[in-house]
Design a protein around this nucleic acid. Structure first.
Lengths: 204, 204
DNA sequence: GTCTATACATCGATAGAC
DNA sequence: GTCTATCGATGTATAGAC
């Protein structure tokens, strides 16, 4: 339980902003210092290096995100409810943190070491041994509630249709005039269309 | 029709490698020069600056990719064939250039100026005024071949389920032991599962 | 066109006063 | 803890000989 000083908080806040906007390589310690209203030397006093600072920011931010994400997996076993609520919660969650999605992608691109660690931590915290969905899908198949399919591919697809619009947001908004990924209109419609597509797609 | 010298080709090749691996900010002119077996000065002789070199590499590489992508939209009007062939072609295309997908994401993150331009060029070259899919989906709905739905959301979903596994590849392979996104096994299975999910999901 | 040598800026990081 | 000043490394870019 280490107490976090006020300066430390200011630094983390500023660093988060800059890293999210510019990425690890593009970020400058000078800019972070300015934004935190201190000088560069203090950055190295609190965090030993740029790498350490980045790691701290990433872990803190992404852990909170993943924690929220995995908390949004419904507890019920009714597969229809599970899918409906998860897609809705997931889209809501991502639409609140669109920059974070692209931040994570950035890290993944560079090898994703920290991301792997964060995932492992979250799995442990929630006591998962595998993707929390898998069991419920498998059960539903055996019960005949949904058709026979590969649960892993279904999960990948579900995540994909939810997250892709935000990944490609700047692109979609350029390619498709009039579209506004973050608008309440689009999000509401997206939730409906996504669930309908998935649900109809897995009927027996 | 400017002719490209051998040295220029070597530079572009080396620069492509480095930019794809390290990103624009992470890339070093020194490394590019070494890989091209020349010295840094020549880089600035042929391309005025790092920015220009990056832009050249990006346009050339991404344009070819998009060109291939849009060429893979089937000509037929039979919506089942269109969807089946597009998903298969698209997954094949991406699996051949997984680094490129993440390269594009990188660019998108930073604003996606070049990406917008590339898209515009491709649209013009192919004479598109909008996403080539839209008409075919709309026609199929009116003909009653598929159920009523929002064509735009369907297209986003189709692209999403195809491309997401490659975007999240390093992550998925960490979170799901034993999975190999690039393996022939996974790709074959993915094509089948994706098409089945989509097709069943849009039946009347 | 291609090289060496170097200018010039900026980066991350540290030393040392307070 | 916080500052100023500065180091050493490295980056992009250019000058000038060949």
């Amino acid at each position: 339980m280490e107490s976090t000083t006020e300066t430390e908080t200011k630094i983390i806040q500023a660093a988060t902003e800059v890293f999210l906007e510019k990425g690890k390589d593009g970020a400058r310690m000078q800019e972070i210092a300015q934004k935190a209203d201190i000088n560069k030397a203090l950055l190295h006093y609190y965090f030993r290096s740029k790498d350490k600072l980045y790691e701290t920011v990433f872990r803190e931010r992404v852990f909170r995100f993943l924690d929220e994400l995995f908390s949004s997996v419904p507890k019920t076993d009714d597969i229809e409810t599970v899918l409906k609520e998860f897609t809705e919660n997931y889209i809501d969650l991502i639409s609140t943190h669109p920059e974070l999605v692209r931040f994570i992608l950035w890290e993944i691109r560079q090898g994703g070491q920290f991301m792997g660690d964060a995932l492992k931590d979250i799995f442990e915290k929630h006591g998962f041994t595998k993707f929390p969905f898998l069991d419920k899908v498998q059960n539903a198949i055996q019960a005949g509630t949904i058709r026979s399919l590969d649960p892993l591919h279904l999960i990948i697809s579900v995540i994909g249709v939810c997250v892709y619009p935000f990944i490609a947001q700047p692109l979609l908004e350029k390619a498709i005039p009039g579209i506004q990924i973050s608008s309440a209109n689009f999000l509401q419609k997206r939730k409906e269309e996504v669930f309908k597509l998935i649900w109809e797609g897995i009927q027996p």
